[in-house]
């Protein structure tokens, strides 16, 4: 490596177990009136930089009017292995949908 190259755009390689920025989850609102939707995740040293990185990474093509960032470890997630116990119970329980019921005779304004 020539001396010129060695002074150009250099970033010291992080050592073993070197410092890493924490992970953040990014939520982007695509336009007024819609809700924030999970767009992805990124690394940033703090919340202020996470917002800026999110702007650079997830709104480059006009996707958003508002951004939320949340530390990834602040999110409690359901266990994918417990999918059966968690999410299969409602199957076949049609009576939980309003469309299951027929309108009684004589009821107005329904």
């Amino acid at each position: 490596m020539s001396p010129q190259e060695s002074t150009e755009s250099t970033t010291p390689a992080p050592g073993e177990g070197g410092h890493r920025w924490p992970l953040w989850e990014v939520f982007v609102r695509s336009s007024r009136g819609l809700s924030h939707v999970h767009a992805g995740s990124l690394h940033a040293p703090d919340a202020a930089m996470a917002l800026r990185n999110a702007r650079d990474l997830y709104t480059r093509r006009n996707e958003g009017v508002s951004i939320w960032v949340v530390p990834s470890d602040a999110i409690a997630a359901s266990d994918p292995d417990a999918k059966g116990a968690f999410f299969e119970s409602p199957q076949g329980k049609d009576y939980r949908h309003a469309t299951y019921y027929t309108k009684s005779e004589g009821v107005k304004h329904l």
Partner: peptide
């Protein structure tokens, strides 16, 4: 543009690239 792929973190690659 020379920073792309050389920044301290991927996120800064994109920030400087932008």
């Amino acid at each position: 543009a020379h920073w792309i792929s050389r920044a301290p973190e991927l996120e800064e690659d994109v920030a400087l690239g932008n």
